[in-house]
């Protein structure tokens, strides 16, 4: 529709780089021995953490499958997410925390990353001294409002519902594990549902009235509430005139833009979920002795 392959490549590269990085560090984490098995001193683990992995494929292909699954709204798994190392599990959770944009579900991944692109363009445009524009359309107060609303709805829903779940009895009895791992299970459940992913960390007894109702609310808001600002944005942008590009235009088909876009996605995701992940996977890994 835009008629520019370069613009598409810039956004696609941001998806590819995030996906690649996540496969990379999840693979590294899963190639390490399972700390619990090591502690038992029963067997050696030359193939890495094989606990819960698909034995036909081995640790790394299973990890690749699960990372791809969590980042694409598919929900199928080739191995037990719950049995990943804490950092491997962190890779699975955080892939969704970034809004499932790498590459996300059909359509939904694209419109989510485009919301991030608008925020990126707004900040970048200000920094070059021009009213920001993306693909020739001016990004003004209305667009910023809608894009910010669209980007922030997922973290808001997840955090608030997880906050409720860990506060009340019905929420706290469900995890199969206590401590940080149990926290990760609750966090995963709601991040997955809000992001329209469908995969489960497992270990959580989710078929209770509380989890069914809250999960339903999370899905409803996460799947559909984001579409409201996205559609409003589409209408608002479609009605605008195209500003011809010139030397003074903030170019959105460059590696610099891709880098900025990744930066904005990581910072927004990181800033909203850092406290939560530090109480879940990060502290769990640290309890095993070291971060990496």
């Amino acid at each position: 529709m835009v008629g520019s392959i370069r613009q598409g490549v810039a956004v696609l590269m941001a998806m590819v780089i995030i996906f690649g990085a996540w496969v990379g560090f999840a693979s590294y984490a899963e190639s390490q021995p399972n700390p619990a098995v090591s502690a038992a001193h029963v067997v050696k683990q030359p193939e890495g953490n094989m606990v819960g992995k698909e034995v036909r494929f081995g640790a790394l292909p299973t990890t690749l499958y699960n990372v791809a699954s969590t980042q694409t709204s598919t929900g199928s798994v080739s191995g037990a997410n719950d049995s990943f190392t804490p950092i491997g599990g962190f890779a699975l959770i955080s892939g969704m925390m970034l809004g499932e944009v790498s590459p996300g579900g059909t359509g939904s991944g694209l419109y989510t990353i485009l919301l991030f692109a608008l925020i990126t363009v707004f900040l970048g445009g200000l920094m070059i001294g021009r009213t920001p524009e993306y693909l020739g359309k001016k990004i003004q107060a209305r667009e910023v409002k809608l894009a910010a609303f669209g980007v922030l709805i997922m973290p808001l829903v997840v955090l608030v519902i997880v906050g409720i779940a860990v506060s009340i009895h019905a929420g706290r009895v469900a995890p199969g594990n206590s401590g940080p791992h149990g926290f990760s299970e609750i966090l995963y459940a709601f991040i997955s549902q809000t992001n329209n992913n469908g995969s489960a960390f497992a270990g959580l007894s989710g078929n209770t009235a509380f989890y069914n109702v809250t999960g339903g609310i999370a899905m409803l808001l996460g799947r559909f509430a984001i579409m409201v600002p996205v559609l409003a944005l589409a209408g608002s942008l479609a009605a605008k005139n195209i500003v011809p590009a010139g030397l003074g235009t903030f170019k959105t088909d460059t590696p610099l833009f891709t880098g900025l876009l990744i930066g904005v996605i990581l910072i927004v995701g990181g800033l909203t979920f850092f406290p939560a992940v530090s109480l879940g996977p990060i502290v769990e890994q640290l309890l095993h002795g070291r971060l990496f």
Binding site: L159, V162, G163, V166, S167, F183, P275, A276, L279
Partner: peptide, 8 residues
């Protein structure tokens, strides 16, 4: 939410 998270 850090209050309930912390409490948990």
């Amino acid at each position: 939410v850090l209050q309930p998270f912390g409490h948990y």
